[in-house]
Design a protein around this nucleic acid. Structure first.
Lengths: 338, 338
DNA sequence: CTTGATTTCCGAAACGTTTCGGGTATAAAA
DNA sequence: TTTTATACCCGAAACGTTTCGGAAATCAAG
């Protein structure tokens, strides 16, 4: 591959001048610039990004950090969508994009700081770390800018993009109540996930504001998994024929509840209304199509990417961004007839 | 961040020795190696990959090249799954992974070769390029190793991984015939896609081997899109009440056909049997669940990644790999009752 | 005591850039 | 004419590694 030196020799100008010409500095004659440009094109020169990054001490690449990107992640189009958003935005901003997938075992070998330092990452966007993940703490302390999606922690070098989680969750529960449901169960996800706690809060608050007694035994744990959710819902539905609606902290868990109803011979939405969260691809194809509150991961990815490069480039931008969720009405919810 | 020089100063040994110690060369005393190791750990040293790559002229990173990774790709879990496979395998092989998403407009600015040279990519795995994509030709000519998924082109530096496309497609059509279907339509994808041509071939061959006349007007074009497929199927089904089965070159197109049947008030599989291709996530959740031939993109990704690093490292490995497709029987196909 | 081998270390060059601090003309101003 | 400004160019150092070639010290053998 042609290097600067090659272009220098072939054009008769010094390496310095060639570099400056190619980079658009204005202290080089129009004529010689053209000459150099031509030679460069002829030789098929393209700059070695590694060398450049080395001296400039910035790589123009952003890392996208996810945990446990493996076979199972495949169901998770949320992850994929934000990835697409990040990639898209970054490519328009002319930044590179490397995918960093960590596992707990890997974290022992390499700290977050090392990971960034090794590749000279300019910034990173982080998605799906647990709240107590050591990498998360490191990331927040670190001097390399990062923005978190769905984890609201702000700092000098840290921003986040999230959605109106609480409001949209409340909206969902209110919707159920407006349709006459009084006995509403809640399928919670992993307790240490941020989104879990706010959806839980939304559930409790709306119950309270409507004068409905909160019952501890109405909240189950589905661990964000279809199977776990189903297993939890099965005995619950048997023991609690009075509940007419289920608010689930994620669509996959809603799917689990749906399966449970099938096994019990219950009809959705006649016997049980179900609301999910996420608007995953499946939710509109399942039968009945799932009423759910939809996130916009692609948008979040884009905003996160955009924010992180703005921070990197020292621009004074807000370190938080929101994208709106919205309740998507489909067919898994009906009026309470009892 | 601590550099080699820092460790050198702190430990009292030369940069050379420190480098050799840390890299496990055997011409350094056990004692001094330990000392150096300790100092390095204390200082939190980690090597600058950029600098290393620069001098070693290899970056230990593999590119994953896809076209048009954007909002719409989101439905495409095939892409995502191979991505997961690639990422997974690469991380166990201790290689980096950068995502390269190209668009036709971008290709004008930068050739494939430049793209590789800039980042000093050691190799690339390519997915989803059209057969006539200029990048594809460049890639094959290029000296940087690449392996293609689902595009069988072999070369010195080029390998591919594909599945038993033809056989599995044939199997699907044979299955329909065995169930008594004689009027079988074929929903084709984009004509220039490799997979399209082989599925088309499979269709024709099996028809012939069973003495069924091939009819030109029985093959439609759905362009691998749900909507296009639906629009094509709608008038076709009206005009051809005699066809009892549809073989679709992809699941998304099968979904399109399915929608068309709904609109026409036809029942699947009683009035029309449908077979798809890909086993996308949706196919098992749709109603009725789709009979389809399943690919294993995750496996393909892994094998592709593995092959490319083997080629990069000069090992003498086969430049082709297969992963098996299999016909997945679900509920969108029934015996022909007419 | 010499010679030769072995062990352990290091200086310096190289990778391909960018950039700092000039330098040399030529033109404009005094 | 001399000074000052301007336009254009370049040498050399730096970024953080690896590696080539050799040097010094130690040890075994002759």
């Amino acid at each position: 591959m042609a290097t600067l030196k090659d272009v220098s020799k072939a054009s008769g100008f010094s390496v310095t001048t060639v570099s400056r010409a190619l980079n658009g500095y204005d202290d080089v004659n129009k004529e010689t610039r053209d000459k150099i440009m031509n030679v460069a094109k002829e030789l098929g020169y393209s700059p070695n990004i590694l060398a450049r990054s080395l001296v400039k001490k910035q790589s123009k690449t952003i890392g996208f950090l996810v945990t446990d990107l493996k076979r199972e992640s495949v169901k998770d189009n949320f992850l994929f969508e934000t990835l697409c958003g990040v990639s898209d935005e970054l490519s328009t901003l002319d930044y590179e994009f490397v995918l960093l997938s960590t596992t707990t075992s890997k974290q022992k070998n390499k700290t977050y700081g090392q990971m960034c330092a090794e590749r000279q990452l300019d910034g990173v966007v982080i998605q799906g770390l647990k709240r107590d993940d050591p990498y998360l703490l490191e990331a927040i302390e670190s001097t390399v800018p990062c923005v978190l999606v769905d984890i609201p922690v702000e700092g000098v070098n840290t921003g986040y993009v999230t959605s109106n989680q609480l409001e949209s969750a409340k909206q969902a529960v209110r919707y159920l109540i407006r349709l006459g449901h009084r006995h509403i169960a809640f399928m919670n996800g992993a307790a240490h996930a941020y989104v879990s706690t706010v959806r839980y809060d939304a559930y409790r608050q709306v119950l309270q504001e409507n004068g409905i007694e909160f019952r501890d035994d109405y909240v189950l744990n589905g661990d964000f998994e279809e199977l776990a959710s189903k297993s939890a819902a099965l005995p619950f539905l048997l023991n609690h024929p009075e509940v007419t609606a289920f608010f689930c902290a994620s669509d996959v868990m809603a799917l689990g509840v749906l399966q449970a109803t099938r096994e019990l011979g219950l009809n959705v939405p006649e016997d049980l209304s179900i609301i999910g969260f996420d608007n995953i691809l499946l939710s509109q194809y399942v039968s009945p199509p799932l009423t759910t509150v939809g996130q916009q991961p692609y948008e979040m990815g884009r905003k996160a990417a955009s924010m992180v490069v703005h921070i990197v480039e020292g621009q004074d931008v807000p370190h938080e961004a929101f994208v709106n969720n919205e309740l998507i009405l489909r067919e898994s919810v009906a009026k309470n007839r009892r």
